[in-house]
Every structure is written in structure tokens, then in C-alpha cells.
Amino acid sequence: MSKLVKSLLPLALFFIVVGFLFKGLYLDPHEVPSPLVGKPAPLFNAPVLAETGKKFSSEEMKGKVWLLNVWASWCGACREEHPVLMDMSKISEIQLYGLDYKDTDAEAQDVLKTAGNPYKLVATDMDGRIGIDYGVYGVPETYLIDKSGVIRYKQIGPITKELLYTKILPMVKELQR
């Protein structure tokens, strides 16, 4: 009997590996979760798009639940996401702020003029420094930040309608309580 058990060992090991491989089929190896979730959002102070001389400080947002959407005019997936952002801007609970990442003012303004501006305000990050602090590696990325300034959720890649209504909106409502 013990001989049979021993000779079953390779099969058992194989099935363990298969289990992981099966799970792996439904995971995305490219998606890297942020270590910043659950940590205070890095503070920044950046120029505001289209308003020369005006600055936005993320400290102003203390006490509010807000979303920071990192985007750029050169990013294709952002265009895909844009209509969802426009929808979001109509939801009263959501405070959507933009961070224009490694872009030029003119091109960014162009996009917002033609496709509509879903943001309460867009801060600019032309040299990508704020992006590095936030661990941005592929735009669009969206951070959900709570009243005390802690990042509660990070979406890598475009926000879909489904995600908005099943995940983000409920979280926002929960955090606002």
C-alpha cells in the first residue's frame, strides 16, 4: 500500500501544479498591485491645466473622498475610458480629479475640448515626478483616496462601466459615511 502511495506522489504533485496553472489562466501577469493601497497618498503641489499660475495642492482634499485619474492625451486606452469618466462626472457623490501625466498643455486641452472635460480640476505632471511617487506605470490609472488622505483602491487600466457601478461607486459611498 505504501508503495502505491509513494508512486502516486508524482501525480499528486502534477495536479497541484495544474491547479495553479488553471488559476493562472484567469490572472493577468501584467497587472502589478500597488503597495500604496492602504497607505497615505503622496502629497503633491502641481500647476493646474489651462490656468496659468494656479496651483493645486492635494492637501486641499483632506476631508473629502476623491478620485485621482492619471491620464494623458497620447494614451489610447484613456480615450476608451473617457466616456465612462464623463458618466462619472454626472454622479454627485464622485469628485473626479485628473492628473495629466507626461503631456503637453496644448494637446491635453485639445482632448478635453473635443471629448468633454469630466474633471473638477486637472493637475499637471509634465516630468512624471508625481507619477513616480504614485507608482504609475501605465496610464490610465485611477486612485480612490479617502477623507484622511489614504489610498483605498487603485485601478490599473481603463475604468469600465461595470467596475464603476459594482466597485467604485459603492466604495465611494461607503467611505463618505
Binding site: 502589478v32 500597488s34 503597495p35 500604496l36 513616480i132 504614485y134 506605470y137
Partner: peptide, 8 residues
């Protein structure tokens, strides 16, 4: 870097 992007 790890603080921003994780062990990855």
C-alpha cells in the same frame, strides 16, 4: 522603488 511599485 519598492515602496512605489512593490516587490515586483
Amino acid at each position: 522603488l519598492v515602496a512605489r511599485y512593490g516587490d515586483f
